[in-house]
Computed example of a mutant assay.
Amino acid sequence: MQTHSTWLMWALMSAAFAALTAVLAKVGVSQINSDLATFVRTVVILIVLAAFVTATGQWQAPSAITGRTWLFLALSGLATGASWVCYFRALKVGDAARVAPVDKLSVVLVAVFGVAFLGERLSAANWAGVCLIAGGVVLVTWRV
């Protein structure tokens, strides 16, 4: 149970910070170009993470990291950068209350990609949840 509560606590905090990200970014991007806003955000993240890794003593020699790990982390970084650029551009012109839920379609895509590429398995109840998330995004973005 300890493992479950640990990942769940971190995931819930991630969701809370992601919600704050959308609201704060919507205000922050209102007066500047969305790409510059993404750059400023990235610099802040870089500084905070460097301080965190330093403070916790987690630095390790680059040579201790395998080539495969470098490749996949670099690809993940490229995907993250592309996601942030698209997200900030969407926030610049759209409502945060609609942009953020569409961005969370990533949950649906992770489920599909996890099954297709990582060999993960989801139960019928899990797939129902994935479908409900997708349906919820449609309902949140639907203008009445």
Rank of each mutant, 00 (worst) to 15 (best):
M1E: 09
T3P: 02
H4G: 07
M9N: 09
M9V: 13
W10H: 13
A11V: 10
A11G: 15
L12F: 11
M13K: 05
S14P: 13
A15C: 12
A16C: 08
L20R: 13
V23W: 07
L24D: 10
L24T: 11
L24C: 06
A25P: 03
V27N: 06
V29K: 06
V29G: 02
S30A: 14
I32W: 10
I32K: 11
I32R: 15
N33R: 12
F39T: 10
T42L: 03
T42D: 02
V43A: 12
I45W: 14
I45K: 11
L46C: 12
L46Q: 08
L49D: 12
A50D: 04
T56P: 03
P62M: 00
A64K: 01
I65H: 04
R68A: 14
F72C: 05
A74E: 01
A74Q: 01
L75G: 05
S76Y: 07
R89L: 05
R89W: 13
G94L: 14
A97V: 06
V107I: 15
L109C: 05
V110E: 13
V110F: 11
A111T: 07
V112W: 06
V115R: 01
F117I: 09
L118I: 08
L122M: 00
A125L: 03
V130M: 00
A134D: 10
V137I: 03
V138R: 00
V140N: 03
V140E: 02
T141S: 08
T141I: 03
W142I: 02
W142E: 02
R143F: 14
